[in-house]
C-alpha cells in the first residue's frame, strides 16, 4: 500500500509544549515541538535521555496530553492542549498501535490471544479476530509460536508478537519507544525492517524513538530532539514515500 500526497498525514502536531510540576518544581519537557509524519513513512526520533522523546511519543499517543499545542492524527483533530476533542480511548483503539522497549505482552495469554485481544477490544468477533491474529503472526514469522505463552518465546519473538498486536487493527499510526533496546543487533534490525515493511505495505505512519544508530538506514527520515526541542530534518535516509523523499 502506497501513500498518496492527498492523504491526511498520520501525525500532524503543532507547537506542543509539556510542562510538568509547577512553580519551583516546574520542568519543561517539550518546547513548541511541531512534527508531521506522512502515512507510509517511517521516522526515527533520536536524542539523549531527558530530551523529551518519550514525552512527545506519549503526547502523540494520547496518553499524556500536552500542556499546549494541537495534535491531529490521520487528519482528525484529537487534542487541543490538554483538552480532548474526541474520545481518546476509543481513538487509540481504532487508530493507534504501540510497541515498547519491552514487548509488554499479557503474560497469561498466548501469543495468538495477545494479538486477538487487541482485535476483540475493537469489537471484532472472536472467530474473525482469531483468524486475523494467526494471519498477522504468520506475516511476522511467528505463527509456529501462536499457542505459546510469552515466557516461552525469545525476546525477538515477543517483540514480533508485540508488533503484530500493534498492527492488528490496521492503525494509521504506529508509535514505538525504543523497540529494539532489549534485542541484539541482528534481531533489532529485523524489527526495524518489520516497521519499514509494515509502513510501506500497509500505509501506516511509524514514529520510532531509538538509540540504535545502526539501523538508521531503514528510516525514511530522522528527527532529533534535544532539551525539549525538535531539529528537523537532520538528514534524509532511504525513502519510498512518493513525493516526499527522494528514492
Amino acid at each position: 500500500m502506497k501513500s498518496n500526497l492527498d492523504d491526511p498525514p498520520a501525525i500532524e502536531a503543532h507547537e506542543l509544549t509539556k510542562i510538568y510540576g509547577r512553580d519551583n518544581t516546574e520542568v519543561v519537557a517539550l518546547r513548541g515541538v511541531s512534527v508531521r509524519v506522512a502515512r507510509g513513512e517511517v521516522v526515527a526520533l533520536l536524542g539523549p535521555s531527558g530530551a523529551g522523546k518519550s514525552t512527545l511519543l506519549t503526547a502523540i499517543g494520547l496518553i499524556n496530553p500536552p500542556t499546549t499545542g494541537r495534535i491531529a492524527i490521520g487528519g482528525v483533530a484529537v487534542l487541543n492542549g490538554p483538552r480532548p476533542l474526541v474520545d481518546l480511548r476509543a481513538f487509540r483503539r481504532r487508530h493507534l498501535g504501540f510497541v515498547f522497549q519491552k514487548a509488554n505482552l499479557i503474560p497469561f495469554l498466548s501469543a495468538r490471544r495477545n494479538v486477538q485481544i487487541a482485535l476483540e477490544i475493537n469489537d471484532v468477533p472472536a472467530r474473525a479476530a482469531r483468524q486475523r491474529a494467526l494471519e498477522l503472526l504468520d506475516y511476522l514469522g511467528v505463527a509456529d509460536r501462536a499457542d505459546h505463552l510469552p515466557d516461552e518465546l525469545s525476546g525477538g519473538q515477543q517483540q514480533r508478537v508485540a508488533v503484530a498486536r500493534a498492527l492488528a487493527n490496521q492503525p494509521s499510526l504506529i508509535l514505538a519507544d525504543e523497540p529494539t533496546a532489549a534485542l541484539d543487533s541482528h534481531r533489532g534490525r529485523q524489527v526495524m525492517e518489520l516497521f519499514r515493511k509494515v509502513a510501506h505495505e500497509r500505509g501506516a505512519g511509524v514514529l520510532v524513538v531509538t538509540h540504535d544508530h545502526r539501523s538508521l538506514d531503514l528510516f525514511d527520515r530522522t528527527l532529533e530532539m534535544e532539551d525539549g526541542r525538535l531539529h528537523e530534518p537532520v538528514r534524509a535516509t532511504s525513502s519510498s514515500v512518493p513525493g516526499q523523499n527522494p528514492p
Partner: peptide, 16 residues
C-alpha cells in the same frame, strides 16, 4: 496493574 494499563492503552473499555 501493568496489564490493565496496557489494555487501557489499547483502548479497552472500562466495562471489559
Amino acid at each position: 496493574v501493568h496489564d490493565i494499563a496496557l489494555l487501557k492503552l489499547m483502548g479497552a473499555r472500562n466495562g471489559m
